[in-house]
């Protein structure tokens, strides 16, 4: 499969948030402002790509050879949690400005199901290493696209008159539904 197909499929056709339902919590939680949404998208892109790379190597070099792939869930979540901690420590030392920008989002990422979901999907789809990394990065881009688009809509939504009963989460969900409908238009692309 060509890398471009993987990219387009993950960003538009099978968008991770709007058609796969992974990473909904941050999608609803940090989408009030475009700037915070972009920060979260950046942090997720970084962690998601790195986590997929590491979990892939662990699966192929440790879990598969020793026949303990039933430990996949435990192993992956521990790797992701450790990785997030490590990135936090390294960023703090190496690039304080980047740490300032991404810092507050990093702890939230451990329990972002998009990270664990993509790591497991990469193994299930039997990608090779490079395809897996491209797949992870594309999914992160898809997450970022959906998040920033949604934040843009919500900024405008604040100025609108919303029916009293739908204020807050309900209108956000209905809006997300309409956004998902728009993304369904891409379904014939590949």
């Amino acid at each position: 499969m060509s890398y471009l197909v993987i990219f387009i499929s993950a960003v538009l056709v099978n968008n991770i948030v709007l058609t796969q339902f992974l990473g909904i919590c941050p999608f609803l939680g940090v989408s009030r402002r475009i700037s915070t949404a972009a920060g979260m998208a950046g942090a997720v892109a970084f962690v998601l790509t790195l986590a997929t790379l590491v979990t892939y190597l662990v699966q192929k070099w440790v879990l598969d050879p020793f026949g303990i792939s039933y430990l996949q869930t435990i192993a992956f979540i521990l790797i992701i949690a450790a990785l997030v901690q490590l990135i936090e420590i390294i960023l703090k030392k190496v690039s304080p400005s980047l740490y300032q920008a991404l810092g507050i989002y990093l702890p939230l990422i451990t329990t972002n199901c998009a990270i664990l979901g993509v790591a497991i999907l990469t193994i299930q789809k039997e990608f090779n290493l490079l395809e897996g990394v491209v797949f992870a990065f594309s999914n992160a881009m898809g997450f970022g696209l959906a998040l920033v688009l949604f934040a843009g809509i919500r900024e405008h939504l604040e100025l609108m008159e919303v029916p009293a009963g739908l204020k807050g989460t309900p209108i956000a969900l209905v809006t997300a539904g309409i956004l998902a409908m728009a993304f369904m238009g891409f379904s014939g692309l590949i």
Binding site: T19, G168, G177
Partner: peptide
């Protein structure tokens, strides 16, 4: 068919939460 697909999930949950809030 829309309700089985992704958009239906978001929209139905949105209205359910609105009802429970009420």
């Amino acid at each position: 068919l829309l309700f089985v697909l992704a958009p239906g999930a978001f929209i139905v949950l949105g209205y359910m939460i609105a009802m429970v809030q009420k």
